[in-house]
């Protein structure tokens, strides 16, 4: 239900005319660190990786500081036939462990368990996670969506259609990434100006999940899976991945989503730790945060021809930064990404 979100936005609206939202300085209480596990095995080719960290305090950043990474742990994945793969630490990324056995590939119908022995000697184990099949993405469509706020790029809303199988309970998750064109003023090289047009990668970290509980056996139509920002004239590339997830994983990500969307309303769900399927083997009352999942994946790509679009001329000006476009934007390149048409 989005009501709680709506109500809070109403209250926020109310409070803007009557009151306000203020930033307050509250120190985060520090409790004993808890183990955080993030891992996934798929039916695609290896390697598969698992990230182990502890909770702690840090200010900013999308990567946990190295001091919170768990190094020196013993990590294995075992399937229900007894096949086991050991995960080795990745040197450049503290806390990340990766499979090295190329013959250990996730298979639909099997179940997988993750086992961790921490340097302190504690053993954690995930519950068996079944790798369920996933239907193919039938169709991707894109529709231009204008954002009224001109400092933000408008773009294409990418939507997926899938036929849900009627015989089983299905849970889905989508992720997507893409490439958009972006301009810069460029820098002079030789007699001309170089590096005005780049391709930049675009990602989206939001959790996009779905249950067939209300639509079992029907079409999933127009599921919004990605928003491709439109900065400059030209094609846009998008790749969408559709994952099967288990019921437990769905519930975990649902809770994750709920906790992330907490807005401080009294209609918010009560805050709760995001405990998943990983338990201390000696003490079942001790749960780790995070989730170890198993998914089948189907992927589809879409090329959007943004050339025909007519926007008011000043639209693009807002998004042109000065200098070499390869330096102005992270991971930008002047070459079209390989293997895309």
């Amino acid at each position: 239900m989005r009501l709680k979100y709506k109500i809070i936005s109403f209250l926020v609206g109310f409070s803007i005319i009557t009151a306000c939202i203020e930033e307050v300085n509250l120190p985060i209480r520090n409790e004993e660190p808890q183990l955080v596990v993030e891992g996934l095995i798929t039916n695609e080719k290896p390697p598969y990786s698992v990230r182990l960290t502890y909770t702690g305090t840090f200010l900013a950043g999308r990567i946990a500081p190295a001091s919170l990474a768990v190094s020196g742990a013993l990590v294995t994945i075992t399937d229900n036939t007894g096949a086991t793969a050991t995960l080795k630490p990745v040197l450049q990324q503290p806390g990340v462990y990766r499979t090295t056995d190329t013959t250990f590939i996730g298979q639909v119908g099997r179940s997988y368990r993750l086992k961790i022995v921490t340097p302190a000697g504690k053993t954690y184990q995930s519950k068996p996670e079944i790798l369920a099949p996933v239907p193919p993405i039938e169709k991707l469509t894109a529709a231009f969506k204008e954002i009224p706020d001109y400092s933000q790029p408008s773009g294409y809303q990418v939507m997926a259609d899938t036929k849900d199988p009627g015989e089983s309970e299905n849970y889905y998750r989508w992720t997507a990434y893409g490439y958009s064109r972006r301009e810069a003023t460029g820098k002079p090289r030789g007699g001309s100006i170089c590096c005005t047009n780049c391709w930049i990668p675009v990602y989206n970290n939001s959790i996009n999940i779905f249950t067939d509980a209300q639509i079992n056996g029907n079409w999933i139509k127009g599921q919004k899976v990605f928003f491709a920002p439109y900065y400059a004239r030209g094609k846009l590339f998008v790749e969408v991945s559709q994952y099967s997830i288990s019921r437990d994983a769905y519930q975990f990500w649902k809770r994750f989503q709920e906790q992330q969307s907490r807005v401080g309303s009294i209609f918010d769900p009560l805050p709760a730790p995001l405990e998943g399927n990983i338990v201390n083997a000696e003490n079942p009352a001790e749960l780790a945060l995070g989730y170890f999942g198993a998914s089948a994946v189907s992927r589809q790509r879409l090329t959007i021809s943004g050339d025909t679009l007519v926007l008011f001329p000043d639209y693009y000006k807002e998004f042109i930064k000065p200098g070499d476009c390869r330096l102005a934007y992270p991971d930008a390149s002047i070459y079209q990404p390989e293997n895309w048409q």
Binding site: L26, I28, V36, T55, G56, A64, Q260, L289
Partner: peptide
Amino acid sequence: YPDGKYILNEVPVVNY
């Protein structure tokens, strides 16, 4: 109030 922080799905998450 949150009493710990970690990264999941490349997003910072606070723990309660």
